[in-house]
């Protein structure tokens, strides 16, 4: 069944017609053209499609678009304020916390979420928390370093 839903994507209200069986991932990518959200396993394993849904991290390949009606969605594009990169994005660049870049939008966004909610996180806890996204290039050490470096900007 077709229906109209409203999504607030990175602060911008977007109305879109969807089918009941459409995934949020596909609506974001195909209909709203938010291409920073990637798909690599399509079943909630790799985390490349991670977004913030009303402030909580979710893997959008296993979320129905219909469920998200009225929700606020943040993707990595939403981290840029007034044309300035966020501290976590800068830290990713400086620390070489990326290789092929496919998982990078998800990882950057998720690390931003972690630092926003747990600015005092330890390196040990971080290893556990980061284990919902796969980086096949194996850049975990650099990602952890980037988060630790960006931490100071997120302290209350």
């Amino acid at each position: 069944m077709a229906r109209n839903i409203t999504l607030i994507v990175n602060g911008v209200k977007r109305e879109v017609e969807i089918e009941d069986n459409e995934l949020l991932l596909d609506v974001l990518r195909e209909k709203l053209k938010v291409k920073s959200v990637k798909a690599a396993c399509w079943r909630g394993e790799c985390g490349a499609c991670t977004i913030l849904l009303n402030g909580e991290p979710v893997k959008s390949c296993i979320v129905l678009a219909a469920e998200a009606d009225g929700s606020e969605i943040t993707t990595v594009e939403g981290l840029i304020k007034d044309g300035e990169l966020s501290p976590i994005q800068r830290a990713f660049i400086e620390n070489g916390a990326l290789q092929c870049g496919f998982c990078t939008p998800a990882f950057t966004l998720f690390c931003h979420y972690i630092l926003s909610t747990r600015p005092d996180i330890t390196e040990e806890e971080l290893r556990e928390e980061l284990s919902g996204i796969i980086c096949r290039c194996g850049t975990y050490k650099q990602i952890i370093r980037a988060v630790m470096q960006a931490k100071k900007h997120y302290k209350k």
């Binding site: 291409k35 920073s36 660049i93 990326l98 870049g101 990078t104 939008p105 950057t108």
Partner: peptide, 12 residues
């Protein structure tokens, strides 16, 4: 840093 890092962290 890789010269395309900006593109990767911004999703473009």
């Amino acid at each position: 840093p890789q010269l395309d890092s900006f593109h990767k962290v911004t999703g473009i």
